[in-house]
Design a protein around this nucleic acid. Sequence first.
RNA 1: AGAGGAGUGGCAGAGUGGUCGAUUGCGUUGGUCUUGAAAACCAAUGUACCGCGAGGUACCGGGGGUUCGAAUCCCUCCUCCUCUGCCA
Length: 424
Amino acid sequence: MLQVAYLREEKLKAIEGLKKRHIADPEILIDGIISLDDKRKSTQTELDALLAEMNSASKSIGALMQQGKKEEAEQAKSKTAELKSNSKILQEELQKVEDQLQKALYNIPNIPHESVKAGKGEDDNEVLSEHGTKPTLPDNKQPHWDLIKKYDIIDFELGVKISGAGFPVYKGKGARLQRALLNFFLDEAEKEGFKEIQPPILINEASGIGTGQLPDKEGQMYHVPDVDLYLIPTAEVPITNIFRDSILEEKDLPVKLTGYTPCFRKEAGSWGAHVRGLNRLHQFDKVEIVQVQHPDKSYEALEEMSKYIQGLLTKLELPYRVLRLCGGDLGFTSALTYDMEVWSAAQEKWLEVSSVSNFETYQANRLKLRYKDADKKKHLLHTLNGSALAFPRILASILENNQTDEGIKVPKVLQPYTGFDMIS
RNA sequence: AGAGGAGUGGCAGAGUGGUCGAUUGCGUUGGUCUUGAAAACCAAUGUACCGCGAGGUACCGGGGGUUCGAAUCCCUCCUCCUCUGCCA
């Protein structure tokens, strides 16, 4: 969430930023927050004075009791009754204002970075660059959902039987290819200086709030009511929450972590042709990279992460392009996001396989994630993360782009991991 | 899952109704001493909020309650330890 101080000091900037997201009346939102904060301050000042009075009254009662002046003490007691009821009222009022303020802050998305263009939705995203060459496929080319049947490597029907739609079963070389991706991505991330983490994949409410999935966006996460935990939609949630309520030393920055996890998404939204096959699933695998950085260096870090992810795609020999998301498509908590999309040659579609974002202090403020500077002053840190990478669409692209009459060629970098160079 | 015990400042650990935001030790930081270091000694050392400031308020696992007053009493939840049970 944003800081009230920021909204006060940089109000115009904040309004401009929120306009890029096509938010109706940002000024009204911000003014509402500022007046709630004013109310909070005045209520607290009033309450504090009252409590101070009560504290001193209690002290003198204590003193009288010790001196054995019982009657005077009783008299003093009766005087505190009114103070007490007033303080209760104020306390409730303060609580109410604080709740309202927090709710209002939760409802404001992050302010987009200055490079982000206004825009309504994905059609307005900027294509920054395109890399690699799209393969020319034979006329009998097949989309990946046909290829997986042909080679019997992924079984959706079996997944339906066991769980439901969107829970594929990977078999034989399909499973082996998944495992190859897993090891390849983690090995590469470690070479890049990311420390490997295996986090829990069920998270509590506080973690969901910390990274911005909760409140209000319960729709995309599976909830296990029995234990009141959520299945993670991405490893970002447990890994970033490692840092909840922590104060880091400046010298320990940046912190770079990576982790593989399955990811679960309810995706209540659209169904149809564009979600066929591996394009959109309820359960999928992903390696995530997370970085906690000094505010002055976070954009540098974002570029590095973006470059790193592009390097993976190059190594996998997949044609890809890089997008900068427009205000309307930008995630709620992000200030700047690059999407990497790979070309899926039979579907003839770009598929998003990575999203790398700088959240600036938005998550850190919720997480209470700070660092101490040389003067021992505390400041919020910046958090970043990116997919490196999401498996299913990479798989779809590999299958489609590399299909030949003899079978599907496995990218060279994966061959040491798969132990085979062809799926046939 | 059942029975018992426990959760206090960076760590260890005292405190069972009144000047306790909390004794003390360790650690950390600064200083004295020293050629330098160690030791010794002196001093400082939690967080958040309100206030221009003086200062005030809140916080002893979380939440609620009793009381003029709660780290201390009561209720509830969470976590950890021990024993018993179950289990990959």
